[in-house]
């Protein structure tokens, strides 16, 4: 079972967390067209490689994290709190 290096709690089993999916920048609500908005809602990069995604430490510190993970090896490059700039 993969482990997530929570910046607050340390290395914890992934079943303490929930994955929240790829991190995508939210378009400007005032100017976004339907195509742009729905690309934000639905489209995914879905790489076979490194992805930047969200994890939520549901059974731990309850912090939202941004994690860089390799989708084939599950190696985790980095994990930071979601509110902190990378």
């Amino acid at each position: 079972m993969i482990q997530i290096p929570c910046p607050y709690c340390g290395l914890r089993n992934a079943n303490e967390f929930a994955s929240t999916g790829e991190v995508k920048p939210r378009p400007d609500v005032a100017t976004a067209t339907p195509a742009v908005w729905r690309a934000y809602l639905y489209d995914h990069r879905n790489p076979e490689g490194l992805v930047t995604e969200g994890w939520y430490h549901r059974a731990g510190c309850r912090k939202f994290l941004v994690v860089e993970r390799h989708t084939q090896t599950n190696e985790i490059r980095s994990a930071r709190p979601a509110g902190v700039a990378s």
């Binding site: 929240t20 939520y56 549901r58 309850r62 912090k63 939202f64 709190p81 979601a82 509110g83």
Partner: peptide, 9 residues
Amino acid sequence: EWVERWLQT
């Protein structure tokens, strides 16, 4: 979780 997510991001 929804509220927390917004407040943390």
